[in-house]
Simulated scan of single mutants.
Amino acid sequence: MSQYIRILRAEHLKLKRTFTRKLILTAPLLTLFLCFMLMGGRFFQSGSLNWWYTMILPGALTLMCSGVLRKDGGKLRYRPILSLPIPASLSWLGKIGEVVILFFGASMFLWVALLAVGLLLPGTISAMDSLLGTLAIFATFLWQIPFCLFLADRVGTFVTLIISMIGNFGAGVIFLPTSDLWWIPYGIPSRLMCAIIQVLPNGLPVPAGDPLLDQSVILPGLLINIGWFVLLSFITAKAFQGKESK
């Protein structure tokens, strides 16, 4: 564990004064700015959370993953870390952990900002619901961190960004009303957010009495995507371990 903490600290130091670390603030602020300009009013808080997970977060998370990889990848092709006397898989888990920290920081900054704005503007959701929504988005997006790291390493940032944007928005719209949604981890955040903030991925309110308002799906949805996070972290770490033999 102490070795992993040292790896996390090293990953954190690599990002000092980089755009990747600044995304903790710039991505939530962009969300708030766009929502204020296009919506505002009593729907500002719920609208911001909706914009966050459907439009801004997929891109921001991809850029975080790409930024973490860029320090050791590129022309160096990970030689600085592959030459260290530590398992390559542990270095990969360190990169996953660093993106998790960045993502959590951005999530909490967004929630605090929504609380502050809520003191000035009337809202449609409570502070606890906005916190639950923020944490639900965080937990259900975690699996995308090892997945995006793997894709960015193999196919590049641009392709990963396109896959992320289409997957997150498309799955939420196409599979939301169907039982197939539970097999598509991209779509689970949309299902949970319908129950928590009562807003569809397209920004419209969920109609009263709609089954999408059922909150019993929250815990299963969280467990499914956290399970994907653990599984993909293990699989991608093993795949990165294979670079030592090349």
Rank of each mutant, 00 (worst) to 15 (best):
G47I: 00
G40E: 03
T62Y: 04
L34K: 09
F19H: 14
I24M: 06
Y53S: 03
G41I: 08
F44A: 09
W52Q: 03
L32W: 04
L23P: 04
W51Y: 07
M55I: 10
T20C: 05
M37W: 10
I24K: 06
C65H: 01
Y53I: 00
L34N: 07
P28V: 00
T26A: 13
L49S: 06
G59L: 15
W51Q: 08
L63C: 06
L34A: 06
T18F: 15
G41N: 15
R21A: 12
M37P: 07
Q45H: 00
L29F: 11
L29W: 06
L38H: 14
A60D: 03
W51P: 07
Y53W: 14
C65N: 02
M55H: 09
L23C: 12
M37K: 13
R42H: 12
L30A: 12
I24G: 01
A27G: 07
M55S: 11
T54P: 15
L30G: 09
L61I: 03
W51V: 00
T26W: 15
G59H: 09
F33M: 15
T62W: 04
C65R: 02
M55Q: 11
M55A: 10
L30I: 14
F19W: 14
F33P: 06
I24L: 11
F43L: 13
L61F: 03
F43Q: 10
G47P: 00
F36E: 05
L61N: 00
G47A: 12
T54Q: 14
G59K: 11
F19P: 01
F19Y: 13
W52N: 05
I56K: 14
G47D: 08
L32Y: 02
R21Y: 15
L34E: 04
L30C: 14
L32C: 07
M39N: 07
S46C: 03
L23W: 14
F44W: 12
M37R: 13
L32G: 02
L30F: 14
G47V: 00
F33G: 11
F19L: 15
I56P: 11
S46I: 02
S48T: 01
W52R: 03
S46N: 06
R42I: 13
R21H: 08
F43D: 03
G40R: 13
G40Q: 11
F33D: 07
S48Q: 09
